[in-house]
Simulated assay, not measured.
Amino acid sequence: MKSSTSIFSQLKSWCVLHPRKAALAGVCAAALVFTAASVLRVKERIYFNWVDMAQASTRIDNAIWLPDYRVDLQALPVAGVPDDLSGITYDYDQNRLLAITNSGPMQIVAMDKSSNVLASYPLIGFKDTEDITYMGDGLVAVVEERSHSISFLTMPATPGPINRNNAHNVTLGLNQSDTENKGLEGIAYDAVEDRLYAVKERDPRQLFAITGVRESLAGNLQLEVRDLSEWLDRSVYSTDLSAVHVDPVTGHLLLLSDESKALFELNSDGDLVSSRTFLSGLSDVKESVPQAEGVTMDTLGNLYVISEPNLFYSFSKKPVTVAQH
């Protein structure tokens, strides 16, 4: 396979020698910008990988530290979910994973840690459900992308339908400039701080923190909403965001990008701590994760990623020993 630099050089030469064949000068310009961006993206990843290795000795003990994670299960199809697996969370009360779909039929699927389906809960009255987060005591929050809404509901004791009319719903009209498929994409709950994090996919990418959620649901309304999008501009080199997770041990955020096929760890100040790619050849996955849509961790620190259409991945921490000289 030719390198991005080689392709860029050849494309540039072709545009210069055959301007008429390109039909429009804009075609050449767009192609040059695209290939140049590809080169820069590779350079960014090399740079951040170098930063991770250079600072490993000082940061590895108080971080999730994504470079230590190795794939255990990869690209396993989830039975009974033909398409549009879009989010995942860990139910620590029942030691199970809860995944959500965003199309026919929309449902919450309970799974074990090997992707075996334990139960399904059809969703009634919901539209374009993108992510789910577990909040404890059976309570979950579900985000709907196009309407920018979050629904709070209790999981039934036995498998069965869940009706939106029985949930507590709130709409976040934040930067809702159009009805395109670029709304709220991910959600995660920090039980220690009683805080929800929500991410907007792109155009622009945004990160919001909503504090006082459970307290408000209990009747003591005291919500505080903060826009943390500056963290993304400063620390997350991705073109989009597809999911977010909060690690209860470190308080660090994990931010997932589908388009950039990467996962980022940020600390409580929004600084980049570590990252890893899901590209084959640059990581331990056999084939690049096609469309990573959800990420979560269990109480043992294991990492789970789901990808459209219905693929399941799990990773565990296997620290790399750094030789001392």
Rank of each mutant, 00 (worst) to 15 (best):
S4I: 01
T5A: 13
S9F: 02
Q10G: 12
K12E: 09
S13L: 14
H18G: 07
A23L: 15
L24M: 13
L24A: 14
A30F: 09
A31T: 04
L32C: 01
L32T: 03
A36M: 04
V39R: 07
E44W: 09
R45K: 13
I46T: 14
S57N: 12
S57G: 12
D61Q: 14
P67V: 07
Y69V: 08
Q74E: 14
A75S: 13
A75Q: 07
A75K: 07
A75E: 09
A79H: 06
A79D: 11
D84L: 08
Y90R: 03
Y92T: 10
Y92D: 13
Q94R: 14
A99H: 00
T101R: 07
M106T: 06
Q107G: 03
D112H: 05
D112V: 09
S115E: 00
S115Y: 00
Y121W: 01
F126L: 03
D131V: 09
T133Q: 03
D137N: 15
V140P: 10
V143T: 13
V143W: 05
E144K: 06
S151P: 10
P159L: 05
G160H: 02
N165H: 09
N169S: 12
V170Q: 10
L172P: 00
K182W: 02
G183R: 04
E185H: 06
G186H: 05
A188Y: 08
Y189H: 14
D190P: 11
L196V: 11
A198E: 06
L207Q: 07
F208I: 15
V213Q: 05
V213T: 08
E215Q: 15
G219N: 01
L223A: 06
E224N: 11
V225W: 02
L228A: 00
S229K: 03
D233T: 12
S242Y: 01
A243Q: 01
A243H: 00
V246S: 06
V246G: 05
D247S: 08
P248F: 02
V249W: 02
T250Q: 04
G251Y: 04
S257K: 08
S260E: 08
K261E: 11
L263Y: 06
L266R: 05
S268Y: 00
D269S: 13
D271G: 00
L272I: 07
L279S: 07
G281S: 04
V289M: 07
Q291N: 14
T296L: 03
M297Q: 12
D298T: 03
T299E: 11
L300P: 00
G301I: 02
G301V: 03
L303Y: 01
L311T: 02
Y313R: 06
Y313K: 11
Y313C: 12
S314L: 09
S314P: 09
K317V: 02
K317Q: 15
